[in-house]
Design a binder for these strands. Sequence first.
DNA 1: TAAGTTGTTCAGCACGGGTTCAGGGGGATC
DNA 2: GATCCCCCTGAACCCGTGCTGAACAACTTA
Lengths: 225, 225
Amino acid sequence: MRALVVEDDPDLNRQLGRALEDAGYAVDSALDGEDGHFMGDTEPYDVVVLDLGLPKMDGVTVLERWRQEGRDFPVLILTARDRWSEKVAGFDAGADDYLTKPFHTEELLARMRALTRRAAGHTTATIECGGLSIDTRGARVFIDGAPVKVTSHEFRMLSYLAHHQDRVISRTELVEHIYDQDFDRDSNTIEVFVGRLRKKIGTDRIETVRGLGYRLVDPVARPVS
Amino acid sequence: MRALVVEDDPDLNRQLGRALEDAGYAVDSALDGEDGHFMGDTEPYDVVVLDLGLPKMDGVTVLERWRQEGRDFPVLILTARDRWSEKVAGFDAGADDYLTKPFHTEELLARMRALTRRAAGHTTATIECGGLSIDTRGARVFIDGAPVKVTSHEFRMLSYLAHHQDRVISRTELVEHIYDQDFDRDSNTIEVFVGRLRKKIGTDRIETVRGLGYRLVDPVARPVS
DNA sequence: TAAGTTGTTCAGCACGGGTTCAGGGGGATC
DNA sequence: GATCCCCCTGAACCCGTGCTGAACAACTTA
C-alpha cells in the first residue's frame, strides 16, 4: 500500500509519515500544494492524506485538479479549522473522508483502513478467453474489442461456459443453469443456441465433445489434450 | 437511491428522514437495532445511517452482523458520545464514515454523497456519460451543456443508471432503488419512465436488454474492452 | 377553484427471440 | 465400408416482452 501525505507542518508531516510506516504503508510526503499535486499526478498511490491549508496551492484546488485529471485514489482531507462549509467544499471536490485536527492517530489509521478496504473492492467483472471478452455485469460480449450482439439466453449460456472454460459442460448442466425449473428433456434448444453462438463468436471457440457436452476454448493457444 | 436510517430518537429519526427525502433519497427508518438489522439484511440499500447507541441490539453489533452476512452497502455511523475508541471500533466493524452529534445536515448530506459516489466508483459530484452530465447535487441534467428538464422520479432513475453505467440494471433493481418499500410488481411504470427519459435525452442512450433490463451507455464512443 | 405538473394505469400493437421440427451431415463402432 | 446415433442447421411458428399514446389520479400552484 502506497500512501502520500501532503501537509505543510514539518513536524506533523514527519509524525504522520512514521505512524503510517509503522502501519505498513510505503509513504511519500510533500510539504506544499504544488509538490503534492505533482506527486499525486505521477505516482499511483493507494490512499492520500491531504491538508486543506497549504502553501502555493490550496488543498481543495489540488484535489479538484486530481479529479479532473482522472486520479481516483481515495483522499482523506485534514484541516485545522472546524468549519463545516469547508468540509462540504472538500467533499464536493471529490474527497472521500475528512478529519479535523487535532485527531488521534488511531482514528486516522482506522479511517484509512476503511478507505483502502472499499477501494480494493472494485473487481473487474469481465472474463477473458483468447480475444473473447465477456462483461458479466453489462451482459455484453466483445471479440477482439468489437461488440457482438447476443440475446439474453445466449449470454447466459456463454457466460456459464466462460466461467468454466476448458472444462466440458454437459447439456443437462447447461440446461440446469440457464433455466429455472426443469425443462423438456428431449429438446434440441441447447444445440440451437450453440449453433447461433458459434455463428457469432466463431465456430472454433466452442468445441463439442461427442456424448459429453461442450467446451469453451481459446482457439489459437490450443492446449495439448 | 435508497437509504436506511437507524436511530432510536424518534424526533431525530423523522428529521433525518425528511432531510434525506428532500435530497432525493427513498428512505426507510428503524427505531431499534433488531429492526434495523433485519431491514438492512433484506433490502438492498445504497447507503445506511446507523446510530451506535441503540436499544435491543448495539450499533456496532448490527454492523458486524451485516458485514459477516456479506452486506456491503456503505454505512455512516452516528454517535452522541465523542469517544474516539468507539469510532475506531465502528470503523473496524466495517463502517465507512463517522459523524458526531450534533452535526449540520449539510455535512451529513455531503458525506452521504461522497459515500454513494465512492461506492459506485465515482469521485466527482457530476457523472459524465458521453455528453450527458448528471449533477447529483443539484439534481440537474445537461446534454452537451444544455439543461434538460426531468422530474424527480426520472432523475432518480437516470441517476441510478448513471451510477452504474455500462451495467445492465434489471427492472426490479430499478424499482427497489427508486421506491421505498414494496411496490406493485406487475406495473409498467418503469417502462413509461424509460420511454419519457429516452424522449428527453435521446433514444440511443438507454439500451434495453431483453429479459434482463436496461443499460445507460455512451452512444458514440462504444467502449472497447 | 381552475390550471398545470407529475406519477400511475391501461390497452393495443409490433417484433424480438425462444422453441420446435424436419432433414442432412459426419463420427464412432463393428 | 455400412450402420447407427449424435449433432448441426435452416426455417417457421408463436408467445411474451417491451413500447407507445392517452387517460386518469394525486398534488401544487396561481
